[in-house]
Every structure is written in C-alpha cells, then in structure tokens.
C-alpha cells in the first residue's frame, strides 16, 4: 500500500485535484464546487465532522493531500443524501465522500482505529469468506475489537438479546464453527477476485 501512495505522490506531484479527478469516484466534479456552503449547512451530522464537504473540496483544490486523506470526515457520512439534493451545482457529494474514504483506505492513509473504517473492514472480510454475512462471528468480532476484557463485558451485557434470538431460532450457536456459505463458493471467490482486479486497474492500484 505504501508503494501505491508513493507512486501517487510521484505521479501528481503538487496537483492533488488531478489525483482526485483520476482516482476518486466522481472526483471530476470537485472542481465544480462554488463554495456556497449549502452542503455544510445541510448535513445532519455536520457538527460531528472535522471538515464539512465544502472544506474538503476547498482543501483538495488547495492541494492539502495529507489533511484530506487523513481526515475522518468522509467516514462520518451516513448517506442521507441531503447534500446531493440541495447542491445548486449538482455535485454528487455523498458519492464523492465515499470515493474519498475508499481512496484514503486503499492508500492506508485513513485514520487508524476509525470505528466506521474498522467495522466496514470487519464486515467485508466476514462477508467475503463464505459469500454471506455470518452474524454470530461478525457480532463477536465487533465486540472483541477493543480487546478481550471489553469484549467479554460487551458480550455479557448483550446476553439476554442473544438468548432471545436463540429461542426464536434466529441465532444458531453452531455458526461459530465457520457457518454455511453460498452454493458455489469457489465461483463466488472468483467473481470477487475479478472485480478487485478490474477496480485496481481502473484506480491505478494494479502493479
């Protein structure tokens, strides 16, 4: 990953806007922002972010690569689409935010320990294993992200819900041993590998 980052820095030197245009989903629309601030004002979680979309777009144009790719703002987006609906310049802001998050993650510049990023990673890895989400291992994996003690505490606090789910036959304890997968697991893995190859090529991550 570091190599990908280095080569990106090399290729675009100080033109971060061009880098975003080439590598980020809908990145070519960043230059069309007219800095009206409607997105920032429309975001229901706006005050929980370090940088509003308006600021992120300004930072991209000002070439602030490290600050943008290290920002946790893109991970805070809940995809409510308020900004897209309201943007007078019709920028697909939500898509750009997710595109930036994805790009920062792939370059491994996204903030470490960012809960949304961690959970998304956990979810992806879980889903990819058997082609379907194993709810038991996903939940347990999530509980134990922050270590054994806090994991046990969390599991115990949730035990009545777990029991209820079990009695209602919504939770099978046997799933802990790997669980069941999709019918053609081999085929599924092949599909995912091919998709990754295509995306890597498109976004310049293939060797």
């Amino acid at each position: 990953m570091t190599t990908a980052n280095q080569s990106a820095v090399e290729r675009y030197r100080n033109n971060f806007l061009k880098e975003v245009e080439a590598n980020v989903e809908e990145g070519h629309m960043v230059k069309m922002c007219m800095q009206c601030g409607v997105c920032a004002g429309s975001c229901p979680l706006g005050n929980a972010w370090e940088h509003s979309p308006q600021k992120i777009f300004m930072m991209i144009r000002a070439g602030k690569r490290d600050e943008v790719l290290g920002s946790d703002s893109m991970f805070m987006c809940t995809s409510c689409y308020n900004c897209i609906v309201r943007c007078p310049r019709q920028l697909p802001i939500t898509h750009i935010m997710h595109g930036l998050a994805n790009y920062a993650h792939r370059l491994n510049l996204a903030p470490k320990g960012q809960p949304t990023r961690d959970f998304a990673t956990l979810f992806w890895n879980n889903a990819i294993k058997k082609g379907r989400v194993n709810e038991l291992t996903l939940t347990l994996g999530h509980y134990f992200t922050n270590g054994l003690v806090s994991g046990i505490k969390m599991a115990l606090s949730m035990q009545s819900i777990g029991l209820g789910l079990f009695l209602a036959k919504r939770l099978n304890p046997m799933e802990i041993f790997g669980g069941h997968g999709v019918k053609d697991l081999k085929g599924f893995h092949a599909i995912v590998a091919k998709a990754k190859e295509i995306e890597d090529r498109k976004k310049g991550f293939s060797a």
């Binding site: 806007l17 230059k31 069309m32 007219m34 800095q35 300004m58 144009r61 000002a62 310049r89």
Partner: peptide, 14 residues
C-alpha cells in the same frame, strides 16, 4: 461562463 471555466480547470479560491 463561470461554470465553463471551472470545467476547464480554473481553480477558484475564496
């Protein structure tokens, strides 16, 4: 005209 300049890559900094 402003939009067309943005499309051409002119950077606008407030």
């Amino acid at each position: 005209f402003y939009r067309s300049a943005q499309e051409k890559g002119v950077i606008f900094t407030k």
